[in-house]
Each structure stands twice: as structure tokens, then as C-alpha cells.
């Protein structure tokens, strides 16, 4: 097989598939378990958008910091956060990634460079700029990366951060995950000029648009913007056009969508299906190898759920800890 058939080797292709599949099944499982009333609070699912998180995060290491969104499970998994700890956190258990104090919207693992999912839209952009500033000041080759949706990209924080990153020439990548809906409101309505890539140019930041349902498109473009940041080329913006398979949050009736929209997306814009077709048709990966990963992933999710359900809840003594390092 020609070695430049794909931009990454077979091992990495399988790893990418495993990550995307893990995100998908994690979210599909939450969808079911939430529907059964087993999960407290509310969750925002990343299903449908896996190619973006995975194609981007394949280029990052633990020193690279990402600031995520309320729809952060996919970013967490792709950045290497343990799914057992994530699941336990979503169940509000003491064994969770945040000891049950954060929940779905605040999962973080700083050791993996995951600065946190965030319940405040657009709040991550300045934080990631800070990570980029730290990398630059400390002289390591890490980068900062913020994720915002098409909605949060209308926040002042996002726009201020583009300017800040540009004037300080920060090693920073702004990822805009444009799934067409800010909660229920269409990007066509809420954004005057709905190309965030073009908007970035107003700040002297180059921006590109990529098909966020195509792993290879994201992978290739992300590789370039990340390399640019590491090499001192400054900030850039990567806009991924993508589809959200579920509602804004679980329980969203999604009556704002067009008729048959979700079914169409599942049929035609499923990044996992597209990936599978591409690599198997090229003969690089055998369908059976992917099937095996599917089974392993399902087993891992089952285990994560079982352990989360069985894990103890935090106790009264935990209520008042972890507020300060020292008080």
C-alpha cells in the first residue's frame, strides 16, 4: 500500500476510529440513560460532531491546552480524559473526574491539557489565550485552543480574544464548531455574516472553513493551523461545519428543525460512516478490525456505566472541601 494514501498510518487510523466511536457510544448511552431518568441535571451531547474533536486532538499533546464548551464530552474523550471518570462525574459520584462537584458541564483534567468544559458560552476563549500566553512565556511548544460554537462565537469574549491573540501573537487556535444552531436559534438568524473564518480576518487572524463531518478534512486542516501556531505563525481560526445529532440538551423536542433533518444527517452526514467507508474502500483497514473496535468500545462504555452506578456518592464532608487550596 502506498504510504501517502492517508495522512496517518494504520495504527493512527484505528486510534482515530476508536476515539470517534467512543465519543459516539458514550453519547448514545447517555441519551438512553438520561431518558430513563438515571442522570441528574442536564447533558449536552456531542454525537455527530466526533470527527472535529478527534481530527483536531490527534495533533495535540498533554502540554497543549484546550478550553471546551458545555458540549464538552467529545473534547474530553479526544483529549484523553478517562471515560470511567467522566461517566462517574456525570452520575455525580465521588469517583468522578471532579469528585462529583462539576458534572457534565465542568469536566476537566488539567494533566491532560483539558482546562474544562464550560457552562458559560464563550468564556473559554480568554482562558485558552492565557494557556497560549503561558506556553509562550515559559518557552515550551504547547499551544492554546478554544472551542466555541456558532452561538458563542457571537460573544464579546470570543471577539476580544481574537484581538488579544493577534496583538500578542499567541500560539493559539480558535476552533468554531458550527452546527447551525445556537441552542435552538439558527446561525442564519443570529449571525450577521455567518462565516467565522471571514470574521477572524477582521482581526488579522486567518480563518478557514472545513467540512467537520469529514475526519480527513479536519485532520489535515487542523494539522496545518496547529503547526502554524507551534512554529510562531500566530493564531488562526478553524471553522468546522458540522451536524448535531441530538437536541441542544437532552429533553429538547427539537421542533425548530426541518422535517426529516435528523434522519437525513444520520444517513448522509455521519462522520463515522464516512470514515469507515473511506478507509475500508481504500483497503487500508478491514471492516472486521473496525467491528472489533466497536465491540471493545461498547464493552468499555458498559463498564464505565456499571462502575459509575456502583460508585459511592460524595458525602456531607465533601460539600465544603476543594473551595480553596488553603483558606
Amino acid at each position: 500500500m502506498n504510504d501517502n494514501v492517508f495522512p496517518l498510518g494504520k495504527e493512527d487510523l484505528l486510534k482515530a476510529y476508536r476515539t470517534m466511536k467512543t465519543i459516539r457510544e458514550f453519547e448514545e448511552r447517555l441519551h438512553v440513560d438520561f431518558g430513563r431518568g438515571e442522570i441528574p441535571g442536564f447533558v449536552h451531547l456531542y454525537a455527530g460532531e466526533e470527527a472535529a474533536a478527534t481530527g483536531i486532538m490527534m495533533h495535540l499533546n498533554d502540554q497543549d491546552r484546550i478550553a471546551s464548551t458545555h458540549r464538552g464530552h467529545g473534547h474530553c474523550i479526544a483529549k484523553g480524559v478517562d471515560i470511567g471518570e467522566m461517566m462517574a462525574e456525570i452520575y455525580g459520584k465521588i469517583t468522578g473526574a471532579c469528585r462529583g462537584k462539576g458534572g457534565s458541564m465542568h469536566i476537566a483534567d488539567l494533566s491532560k491539557g483539558m482546562m474544562g468544559a464550560n457552562g458559560i458560552l464563550g468564556a473559554g476563549s480568554p482562558l485558552a489565550c492565557g494557556a497560549a500566553l503561558a506556553a509562550k512565556t515559559l518557552g515550551h511548544k504547547g499551544i492554546g485552543m478554544s472551542f466555541t460554537g456558532d452561538g458563542a462565537s457571537n460573544q464579546g469574549t470570543f471577539l476580544e480574544s481574537l484581538n488579544l491573540a493577534a496583538i500578542w501573537n499567541l500560539p493559539m487556535v480558535f476552533v468554531v464548531e458550527n452546527n447551525g444552531y445556537a441552542e435552538s436559534t439558527s446561525v442564519d438568524y443570529a449571525t450577521a455574516v455567518d462565516s467565522y473564518a471571514d470574521r477572524a480576518a477582521g482581526f488579522g487572524v486567518p480563518g478557514v472553513i472545513v467540512d467537520g463531518t469529514d475526519f480527513f478534512a479536519v485532520y489535515e486542516a487542523a494539522g496545518e493551523v496547529i503547526r502554524r501556531a507551534r512554529e510562531g505563525g500566530g493564531p488562526s481560526l478553524l471553522e468546522c461545519k458540522m451536524v448535531r445529532f441530538f437536541g441542544h440538551f437532552e429533553g429538547d423536542a427539537q421542533t425548530y428543525r426541518g422535517e426529516g433533518e435528523n434522519e437525513y444527517n444520520r444517513e448522509n452526514n455521519d462522520c463515522l460512516k464516512l470514515f469507515r467507508a473511506r478507509v475500508t474502500e481504500a483497503g487500508v483497514v478491514d471492516g472486521g478490525e473496525l467491528d472489533a473496535i466497536d465491540s471493545e468500545v461498547l464493552a468499555a462504555i458498559d463498564k464505565a456505566v456499571e462502575e459509575a452506578v456502583a460508585a459511592p456518592l460524595p458525602g456531607a464532608a465533601d460539600l465544603t472541601t476543594d473551595v480553596y487550596v488553603k483558606y
Binding site: N2, N4, V5, F6, P7, A217, R278, A282
Partner: peptide, 9 residues
């Protein structure tokens, strides 16, 4: 071209 994927086009 040699690439077997459309990618970033």
C-alpha cells in the same frame, strides 16, 4: 494526486 482522501481539498 497520490492522496487517497479528499481531506482539506
Amino acid at each position: 494526486v497520490a492522496e487517497r482522501y479528499v481531506g482539506a481539498r
